[in-house]
Write a protein that binds this DNA or RNA. Structure first.
Lengths: 133, 133
DNA sequence: TATTGACTTAGAGCTAACTCTAAGCTGTAC
DNA sequence: GTACAGCTTAGAGTTAGCTCTAAGTCAATA
């Protein structure tokens, strides 16, 4: 099955503008064209896009994703390098997740803080910090 | 204890430029000045900064943080609204954390994929998708 | 055959969040 | 009293990641 850019936009959750931009940036080397120059996305391309979205949304910059795609193009000689990319990126994502857990605790504290303040009708009840942190 | 902008930059992990920018944007209404106009950060200001960093790094845009700081300035009348801000933001952070977990699974899959490919010396072993996903 | 709508390109424009520059002021150290 | 480090301001510049515009091509339909 072949997909137009509009179809692919829908399926990937990216806009057609973004898909063209990604191609310009060298992320979508895999996309074929019809004889008249129109992009034709394949089923496998959607898999690639899903990986790109994964890397991007987990914090990898477009340029680094491009480097990874370049490695992919070079075949089996770059397998170790590609493994290293994911091992490194996993570390970065773990750090982010830990940070998010820390922030979540702070947010939960604030929810408790404001819940009790709303009950009391004033923030002043927290003035002497007499309660749980 | 009072801190200069340079000290505060060090302690908050933000640059002095960023602190001035945040003030310009209305996030740091709490900061005092010396008679000659130099910013003087207090211990409590570092707490505010830590909250700002928490909200920003967990995905809240600067403009929304500003609105929240505006609510704070208005006192007890806005307690309910402020509670709502954190309840909403908590939801958003939860969604992000779930996404991150999904991405982590994909990354782990790729680590397995490339580990086995490196062992085999070729990516071709995954061609017929005969192994665990 | 004419219209329509989806595609193409190059390149300009936009937004968020900084980041820096230039010119000038302040306050302590010699 | 002057040198110097560190502060001040307004405003320009930067970066990432899109987002859009203008002008044109192409294929299917009325």
């Amino acid at each position: 099955m072949k997909y137009s850019i509009a179809e692919t936009a829908k399926r990937s959750g990216l806009s057609a503008y973004t898909l063209r931009y990604y191609e310009k940036e060298g992320l979508l080397r895999f996309v074929d064209r019809t004889p008249s120059g129109i992009r034709e996305f394949k089923e496998a391309d959607l898999e690639w896009l899903s990986l790109i979205v994964c890397l991007k949304n987990s914090g990898m910059p477009i340029k680094q994703i491009k480097s990874f795609m370049d490695l992919c193009k070079q075949g089996d000689a770059t397998l170790k390098e590609r493994l290293a990319v994911f091992i490194e990126h996993k570390k970065a994502v773990q750090v982010k997740m830990e940070e998010f857990e820390k922030y979540m605790k702070k947010i939960d504290y604030k929810i408790w803080y404001y819940t009790t303040a709303v009950e009391a009708g004033t923030e002043a009840i927290h003035e002497n910090n007499s309660c749980e942190p």
